[in-house]
Simulated assay, not measured.
Amino acid sequence: MSSSSSDEVDEAFEEMFDEQLDNFIDSIIEIQANKPKRRAYIERNREQGHKQLWNDYFSEEPTYLPDMFRRRFRMNKPLFFRIVDRLSNEVPYFQQRRNAQGRYGLSALQKSTEAICMLAYGQSGDTYDEYLRLGESTALLRLENFTEGIIQLFGDEYLRRPTPEDLQRLLDVGELRGFPGMIGSIDCMHWEWKNCPTAWRGQYTRGSAKPTIVLEIVASHDLWIWHAFFGLPSTLNDINVLDQSPVFDDILHGRAPKVNFKVNNHTYRLAYYLTDGIYPKWSTFIQSIRLPQGPKAELFAERQESTRKDVERAFGVLQSRFAIVKNPARH
């Protein structure tokens, strides 16, 4: 009796031990399966990337001359240094720091060069990995912080409404070009939206084309885009976009600057824009003459159409200098 009872106790103990061991192993496997996987670390030797970039473009005797720098970076070197200097001094993200091992991180030159190249050429983030020594996820993060830093540092100077001095300059230039009272040309372009949600594709697609978003701008002769309205679906035409645009908010609220000019002995108090034929026949829009009759009408149509090319040229330069606008936007 004593031996039989002891065997039963041993068997019960073994079963309990096996069960607890199985539960423990299952819990370990579950924890390991749910544990986030660490990214593989790649030693890119970022110091070598900074040294090569410095020797190629920024040393006292660079490999590539300033004209090649201007062509490749889409800006001259003093402007580039102005941007990098302000970013590195006023934006903490672009300040070079040491890590826990005392090793320096990416330099402000590397971060800014990568962001500017992505804006200028619209390529993927890992395109510049072999030269600048930074990965794709890092490159996309640099681009986002670069654009936010530019808006923070230069927005008050460049992303603003025209001041009275700017308005007077635009009026003077317009008068010299034969259009007194003209302050720019207005038009719309379409920006392809690669990652448009499937549920929205019908709203953002015209016919069999790809989904696009409408950008409305007002541009002057010197490519200054001083009004931009972006975000409406491409199924809307220029008139529908104009109905939702804030371009006339200052006039509607009585905040528009006072403008006085004379044409054919008539005094006008509102500035106007040059447009194409789709826009309504308002006093603030001046279109060309579709079928001009006589020398005066032909001359006016020729001058209006040539001057209105300012906005078309602005669209062309915007898409050529910043290919990220022309290509499907990743962000």
Rank of each mutant, 00 (worst) to 15 (best):
S3M: 11
S5T: 12
S5F: 13
S5K: 12
S6K: 08
V9H: 09
V9D: 11
D10M: 14
A12Y: 04
F17A: 14
I25Y: 06
D26W: 04
S27K: 13
I28E: 14
K37W: 06
R38F: 10
A40G: 12
E43F: 03
R46I: 15
R46N: 05
G49R: 00
P62L: 02
P62S: 00
T63W: 00
K77Q: 10
S88V: 10
N89I: 05
N89T: 11
N89S: 14
E90P: 01
A100E: 09
G102H: 06
Y104D: 05
L106P: 01
S112N: 12
I116A: 04
L119Y: 02
Y121I: 03
Q123A: 07
D126F: 05
T127G: 07
Y128V: 04
Y128S: 03
L132H: 02
L132G: 04
T138I: 04
A139Q: 02
L140N: 13
E144A: 05
G149V: 03
Q152T: 14
L153D: 09
D156S: 14
R161M: 05
D166M: 01
L170V: 04
G174P: 13
R177G: 08
G181A: 04
I183N: 09
E192A: 15
E192T: 15
W193V: 04
N195P: 03
Q203T: 10
T205Q: 01
T205V: 03
T205I: 03
G207W: 04
S208T: 06
K210M: 07
A219D: 02
L223A: 03
W224T: 06
W226S: 03
W226D: 02
F229C: 09
P233R: 03
S234E: 13
T235S: 13
N237D: 15
I239N: 15
D249M: 06
K258T: 13
N260F: 08
V263P: 00
R269C: 13
L270D: 13
G277S: 14
G277M: 09
P280M: 01
P280T: 06
S283H: 08
I289L: 13
R290Q: 08
P292N: 09
G294R: 11
G294Q: 12
E298D: 10
A301W: 01
E302F: 14
Q304E: 14
E305H: 08
S306K: 15
S306W: 01
R308M: 01
R313E: 00
F315R: 01
G316Q: 08
Q319A: 09
F322Y: 14
K326D: 07
R330A: 05
